[in-house]
Structure formats: structure tokens, C-alpha cells
Design a protein around this nucleic acid. Structure first.
Lengths: 150, 150
DNA sequence: TATTGTTATACTCTATAACTATA
DNA sequence: TATAGTTATAGAGTATAACAATA
């Protein structure tokens, strides 16, 4: 199977990604791969990653507003609207007025059931992810990542 | 400055992101932060991250086709077209026919000068990135990331 | 005055489908 | 038949600006 024809101009096979030694590039590729995989897993519960993140963040809390959620997850208020609308139309969340201006986003009965599914999927996925990292590097992974944004 | 008013319903300040212990979540947040920063740095040379990646990949090579580049960087051929067009309109690359079907993407004189600028920016950025990771975790970073996608 | 929430909009990135032409 | 390249298009994600109502 060895290809030794020197006239073969298509060198794609010989390019073994010289960029992969770069931390930023490796970070992007790893994140893209992870997002694609998690996204596929969440298709089973008809949620996007950002929507699942919101359910996980709310969990049992009844005091989180749209802006509070957006602040934590780094989502602009204008972009929170369609995100929460979709969760609302699926009957997963409810808006409870806190005062004339603010509304708490809380999980409905259906939302709590969905959250349980999301937790099962993400917990399995997250431990899968860790298991793929060689044991020697594993404990360093989250601390290193968190140093880059927290 | 301490806020101790227990009647304050806005608990945003009290939410310290319980999701950050999750590897997948931390990976996404770190990658987003990195991309935003690198993107800003590359504004100085009027290039996007994907465009800079292409210049870095080509470097001195004269045998890489659009599809070869796309295979390495995981960019679909349909999406390579506008990407290469923009580099071409900026006079940074040229297309050299290899046969009636394939074209090698090579750097122009101007492209080589631009690449030098890109290298300066990215090398400074990449070492900056590493420097932010606590020393104990630093050597584990790229190997751990590469285990997730290579 | 600052904050909460909303609407409208635009830009980027990425994905698929359909197609032409050449190997 | 498979590969190289292109066109058109659609869906996500995310950004800004402008606005109403309330704190």
C-alpha cells in the first residue's frame, strides 16, 4: 500500500498538520470535536448545547433571571430571548414574575424530567471525555482550561 | 462594598458557574475566550483565524491543493472557496495549475510578507497562552487536547 | 440613571445538495 | 467511478443598535 510515486502531486497524505503543536490550534480543534459530539448526543433530547447548559444551570434554583443566566454563560440578553422562547415552547421552563421588571426562569415538571435526561447524557459524556485523555495528563486538564477564561 | 441584603432576589453574583468543573464546558469556554482574543489580534493584519491558519499551513509549500488544505484543517471544499477567494483578492495567494483538475495554492510575495506578520502575532500569542497556564499543568495541555481530536 | 427584557438585523461559520469537469 | 472545484442556500451562533418599562 505504500505510495512512493514521487510524481504524485497530491501531498495531502504527507501533511500531518504541523499546526497541532500550537496550543491555541489544538484548543480549537479539541473544542470543535467535543462540541460536534455532544451536539449529536443532545439530538436525542432535542436540545442544543446552549439550551442544555441553561437547564443544568437552573437545576433546582428559582431565583435566576434571564440576565443572570446570560451573565454566567456569557450569552447576550438579546440572544437569550429566542433561546428561552424555545425552551418555553417546549414546556420546559416557566417565567415567574419577581417584580414588575424581572422574571425568574424556573423548570417546569417537564423541564425537571428533561434535566434528568440531560444530566445522564452529559455526565456519561464528560467522564468519557476524561477517559480519552491519557491518565498522566487527566488531572491537569480542567485546571489548565479554567486558567484561560475564569 | 459587601452585599448582604438577603431580600436581593438577583442572585447572579452568587452563581459562580457550577458548570466550570465539567471538562466539556471548560473546554468550550476556554476555546471561545482564546478565539475572541486571537481574532482581535489578527484584525491588525486583516485576517480571520481560518485565513491565518491557511497561510501558516501553506508556508513554503507549493504542492497543496484546496482539498488538501481542507482535509487538514477540517474545512469543507464548499467553504474553502470564499476563504481562498478572499486571500486571493488580497493578493496573498496564487493558484498554480497542477493538471486540468487540480490547482496548487501558493503564497505570493505579498503573501510571504503577510505570513511573517502572522507568525509574529501567533507565536507571541501562543506563548502568552501557555504562560497563563500554571506551570504545573503547562506541559500536559497540548497532549491532553490532542488526545481529544487527533 | 442603570437595569431588565425585547425586537430587528447583520455577519460569521458551517453544513448540504446539486452541479461541472477531469483523473 | 472517484476526485477537484464551484454555486447556491440554509441553519446556527453571535454582535450591535434602538427601544420600552421598571428599579
Amino acid at each position: 500500500m505504500a505510495r512512493t510515486d514521487s510524481r504524485n502531486h497530491n501531498a495531502a497524505a504527507a501533511v500531518d498538520d504541523p499546526l497541532s503543536r500550537l496550543p491555541g490550534y489544538a484548543l480549537r480543534r479539541a473544542a470543535n470535536a467535543m462540541m460536534a459530539e455532544l451536539g449529536s448526543l443532545l439530538d436525542a433530547v432535542d436540545l442544543r448545547i446552549s439550551e442544555a447548559s441553561i437547564l443544568l444551570l437552573i437545576d433546582g434554583r428559582e431565583d435566576l433571571t434571564s440576565s443572570a443566566i446570560g451573565n454566567v454563560l456569557d450569552i447576550r440578553s438579546a440572544n437569550m430571548v429566542p433561546l428561552l422562547n424555545r425552551l418555553s415552547h417546549q414546556g420546559l421552563i416557566e417565567k415567574v414574575p419577581l417584580d414588575g421588571k424581572s422574571m425568574a426562569i424556573v423548570l417546569s415538571e417537564k423541564g425537571r424530567a428533561k434535566l434528568a435526561e440531560v444530566k445522564a447524557i452529559t455526565e456519561a459524556f464528560e467522564s468519557d471525555l476524561l477517559r480519552r485523555i491519557p491518565a498522566a495528563h487527566r488531572a491537569h486538564f480542567v485546571p489548565a482550561l479554567n486558567a484561560l477564561w475564569r
